[in-house]
Amino acid sequence: MIYLDNVHKIFNQGKVNEFQAIKGVDLTLEGGKISVLKGPSGSGKTTLLTMIGGLSRPTSGRVRLQDRDLSSLPERFLTEIRRKTFGFVFQQFNLIKGLSVLDNVMVPALPTGRDHKEVRDQAAALLGRLKIAHKSGARVEWLSGGEAQRVAIARALVNDPEIVIADEPTANLDSALSEEFLEIIHGVKQEGRTVLMTSHDPVVCDAQVVDRVVSMRDGALVDGHQA
């Protein structure tokens, strides 16, 4: 479902501090499964994640979603596809301060032109499903770590994406909350969505719900070939 062909990523190309973050990765990820990119910090897993999710473009090589070539799309269309297809949960949650929980959840839907009331209702429903509806009017600064993450997940789901991407989701959580997170993710998978995560947390990598673990080191896959 997601195909990477010989993907390279170079930062500061042509300058003195040129840095190769991804060195020729080939990867195929199956739809409807939970996959984890595992590796130490600096291994390039976050960079790979951003390229898969359409947040940045590879310097060379191709990223394909089904039969659609993402890497050659200009930002305008990439963003449109990304909005519809991907939902992001960031490591730092990245909620907008000063806005309420409900407003935060609605943000990704605002440029889509969907009916405002419909979006509001859906956001409220998502918060209910994640058992955090009682906080929907609260300011995000007042939330605990676990609560903030649920809001982030709700936000990621507001545009009904096929693929949910989470970057180091348990980095700021204790074990109990991590387990809860995995349960939520399992629920997401059961809705038919694909989940892709990066982590170096054994709780995540060894979890039962995870279907596949891909190891990375120094910008390349550890196994070296299509896994």
Binding site: Q13, R57, P58, T59, S60, S71, S72, P74, E75
Partner: peptide, 13 residues
Amino acid sequence: NIGSGSELQVKLE
């Protein structure tokens, strides 16, 4: 060069 993902192309876009 629409096909390229180089930094120059991004800047042009």
